[in-house]
Write a protein that binds this DNA or RNA. Structure first.
Lengths: 128, 128
DNA sequence: ATACTGTTATTGTTTTGATATAACAGTTAA
DNA sequence: TTAACTGTTATATCAAAACAATAACAGTAT
């Protein structure tokens, strides 16, 4: 688990941390039950504030990726954790709903929308 | 074309204006070639800054909804305007791509994703 | 010339991101 | 119990970005 932050800016530090940890959880690099490096360890090694790290961990907890236990540490949740799954499914639906709204503005039909989705799914698949 | 702003919400004024004008264009309330009320008219009637209105108009122009001509006014583009259609299709694809990314994180299959889309499409249809 | 149009520069206010410091609270092992 | 670690919370400060207002600028038309 190698955390890095880039000062090229645009993306907040806590957001960069969140993304890297999410990716590590979803890829399996971080196993269920494994402890993340402590707030102060991350803060010290990356030369950032403890609060910034805490924000990343807190938001990851709200999204179901990890669970924090005061005095012990911050532990990775399994990919099949109910809260995590629920969160991701809800976000998927939100994205789809936005796509539907925009599609209706252009006058795309149901069939055309499914077609677009299919095309994008195949493009994604080529990247594997 | 009745513009209204609500100060209660966290939505920026220029964004509120954009949404209402977009809706009016897409619904046909504003016809192609029709002139929007001038910057200063809107600013005066809504008691807001000219700059705020200008921002709304400028962004609408970048998205292909209207076209501004210095010294003359701001005119509505047709719903079939190529730039507008391209913009909306691109946004639809972006939303779908985000949905795909999130769906893959939960492990949703292609079929399940299409299913979700179908369900949401039917819910939308009930609202007509 | 005037009276309208959109555009842009400057400025000020508010919000957001990040920080430092400190105190607080729970866990673990010497 | 004490010491050394964990996460949590409160306060204050700073910089940058987003939002908006004023005023000057520039084009169009009568």
């Amino acid at each position: 688990m190698n955390l890095v932050i880039s000062n090229v800016m645009g993306i907040p530090i806590y957001e960069q941390l969140k993304r890297q940890i999410k990716a590590a959880v979803l890829s399996g690099e971080l196993q269920e039950g494994e402890a993340l490096p402590s707030l102060r360890t991350v803060a010290r090694e990356l030369r950032i504030s403890v609060l910034t790290t805490a924000r990343a961990y807190t938001e990851l907890e709200q999204e179901g990726f990890v669970v924090s236990i005061q005095g012990k540490g911050c532990y990775v949740q399994g990919r099949n954790n109910a809260l995590l799954r629920e969160h991701l499914v809800r976000r998927t639906e939100e994205h789809l709903a936005e796509a539907i709204l925009t599609a209706r503005q252009v006058g795309l039909s149901k069939k055309e929308l499914h077609g677009l989705l299919e095309i994008l799914l195949q493009e994604e698949h080529q990247g594997d």
